[in-house]
Design a protein around this nucleic acid. Structure first.
Lengths: 182, 182
DNA sequence: GTTATCATGTAACTAGTTACATGATTCC
DNA sequence: GGAATCATGTAACTAGTTACATGATAAC
């Protein structure tokens, strides 16, 4: 069996237990994994089709009134595929983040504007913190411990990150304010 | 001016100051930004061509012996484009990480194997820590403060992350080892 | 009655990866 | 002389995004 893409595994993960529609999967992603793995309808719907063809999920029509609706469930093969992927250690060393990339090249801006990047990163992290808090509240106490520790970890990390931004700002302000040579 | 892709800005960032070849840019990426933004030759070379056509960089032939070699420098327009991008706050809320995605779905595995994911994440973080340490040593003291704080931040964060994995492992081991219902 | 949400999808596109090909130079 | 590194590139592909279209139902 060939390796699937990450979005496929996200789908497999979410259709365990309860059957879900594409729309529901998108909503689940937006309230959980999207901070470290996002997904769009443009990926989800074609992927649901592919996974069905591969026999890893099965769909059944459950319309609400005359509004059509298909929910998908994982098959035994699908569960095996998901577990096989989980067992492999992560292949990538990359933790993609646009903010850090900008900060890395912040020397291209005058010092004061570079600091602005740090401040906006901090603001962004605080916004994410609030968002995660709201999600945590919503979830209450999930019975599955792993999603819960990832969520809490996200909260801790976001706070850490915001504090780091603050520390770095202070440090840069302390350092000779116009050491800039060249 | 339309928005370019992230790799284009990485290139613009690295061809400031000194002229660099595609090969050098790749090496620079691999020793710095690759932990939060990677790049492959398959992106870099076509992008160098596009950026040249757009007038944001200029290339000049500087062969070593009879081995052809083109180095690129940023133009005034290129600098302006880079700064314009830096000034915009990051557009994405996503910090893509495969390991966290796996941990999130670790409930699909028996508890002991789920813990294995945490352990391999910790091991991976420690490996990255060593890698970053080596890079830090190589760089010595860069005159530009921003790349340096990002590098140091990477070190701090990696350590934090490894410790978090350890704490979570302990916590999961403490919790009723077979609370798993259903 | 109108706005928000539920629901599914696709076409056109951009971004990025993988695998390969080629050849010069340097180091041992 | 052989291995590692320098150096450039492309073709085929996969992954993922954006923008759009469509229409039902629920909430106010």
């Amino acid at each position: 069996m060939e390796q699937l893409n990450a979005t496929a595994y996200v789908i497999l993960g979410f259709v365990r237990g309860e059957p879900r529609s594409g729309y529901e999967i998108k909503a689940l992603v937006d309230n959980s994994t999207r901070f470290f793995w996002a997904a769009s309808y443009g990926q989800i719907y074609p992927e649901l089709k592919r996974l069905t063809e591969a026999g890893l999920i099965v769909g059944s029509d459950v319309p609400t009134g005359s509004r059509k609706r298909t929910v998908y469930e994982i098959t035994a093969d699908g569960e095996e595929e998901l577990r096989a992927w989980l067992r492999q250690p992560p292949q990538t060393f990359e933790m993609r983040d646009e903010g850090l990339l900008k900060l890395f090249f912040a020397d291209a801006l005058p010092r004061e504007e570079g600091l602005e990047i740090l401040r906006s990163m901090k603001a962004q992290r605080l916004a994410i913190y609030e968002r995660l808090r709201a999600i945590e509240q919503m979830k209450g106490e999930l019975e599955d411990p792993f999603p819960m520790i990832v969520l809490r970890g996200g909260l801790e990390f976001t706070q850490w990150f915001a504090q780091w931004c603050e520390r770095m700002e202070a440090q840069l302000l302390d350092a000779a304010p116009e050491k800039r040579s060249k």
